[in-house]
Amino acid sequence: MAKKSLSTELDAFISPFRIDGSSKFHLQSHKTNAKGGLDKEAGEKILDANRKRLAEFQEKLFAQDRWSVLVILQGLDAAGKDSAIKAIFEGINPQGCEVTSFKQPTNHELEHDFMWRCVASLPKRGDIGIFNRSYYEDCLVTRVHPELIRHAKIPPKLVTKNMWRERFEDIIAFERYLSRNGTMILKFFLNISKEEQRKRFLDRLEEPGKIWKFSMNDVTERARWGRYQAVYQDIVRHTSTKVAPWHVVPSDHKWFARVVIGSTIVAALDRLDLRFPRADKASLEEFAKVRKALEQEDAGTRKKKQP
């Protein structure tokens, strides 16, 4: 019997959550507490297997030096982005992976277009780049807080009712451009319920090791929950494409969110058919000479040590 491909093996944890623009998207139809028929113990085994697979793929990705991978993580406060990065990418070589967290834009960043700071952090060939939030924040926070547009120094005549549709068009074109140049884009929206967010905020307040994560601004933004949900739905609906689909990840159970994200990344890398580079004939002949010289050097050293 033929061995199943990774994509087939892991498909149950990928396809149900993949949005590629081929059908209508409604955020409310996606459950935040789904577990894919697994329990936590089974999920942890898949997560552990995916870590090992990811480490192997990353080594080949780095050695081949052709493709790059961009992982985008979006989600409301306490959705689990930081912990997902730590759990999924544990054990891989940091030399070929970089995490960039995008927070409130600095004055210098506001002197440029809204995607500039993200473009400056794109992964180079052979690398995995992880964006903890991204250029999508400028289609999210700025819509929930329209007053922030004034700080972006955009000419007033360009701030119109078509602005968000135009940004979606720019993002789609940008992601198509990256894809055509060898960057595989994997986008994840960590979909958490309002009740689960409440519980996680309480956990942060009760545990000394987590309280540093809490901010009063988190509570302020929580009051705008409905608006954030509506805008995220609009973002996913208008920027999901075949080359850069969104994955709406059920995130009430952190372990299952990690199964979905890790499985998606591993299956995508598997489809790239990554291989270690092969040496050409001339190099192999040269390597044979080097090996012979090293072996003779070792034999000579051992001969000198004999009494």
Rank of each mutant, 00 (worst) to 15 (best):
A2L: 12
L6Y: 14
F13Q: 02
I14E: 02
I14R: 02
S15G: 11
F25W: 05
A34P: 04
K35F: 05
D39T: 05
E41Q: 13
I46P: 00
I46H: 01
D48C: 15
A49L: 12
N50R: 04
A55G: 06
E56K: 10
Q58Y: 04
D65P: 08
W67A: 08
I72C: 02
G75C: 02
L76M: 12
A79W: 00
D82L: 03
Q95M: 07
E98M: 12
V99T: 08
T100F: 09
T100P: 01
S101A: 13
K103I: 15
Q104H: 10
P105I: 02
E109D: 06
D113N: 14
G129Y: 01
N132L: 07
V144R: 04
V144C: 05
H151P: 04
A152P: 04
I154V: 15
P155R: 14
P156F: 09
P156K: 12
L158G: 11
N162E: 10
R165W: 11
E166V: 14
I171E: 06
I172G: 06
L178N: 07
G182R: 14
G182N: 11
K187E: 02
F189R: 07
F189Q: 05
L190W: 03
L205M: 12
L205R: 14
P208E: 09
P208L: 10
G209F: 10
K210D: 08
K210M: 06
K210H: 09
W212K: 07
W212V: 07
R222S: 09
G226I: 03
V231Y: 02
R237N: 11
R237I: 03
H238Q: 08
A244W: 00
D252R: 00
V260E: 01
D270W: 07
D270I: 02
L274D: 03
L274I: 06
R278M: 14
A282V: 15
A293C: 11
L294V: 12
G300C: 03
K303P: 00
K303E: 02
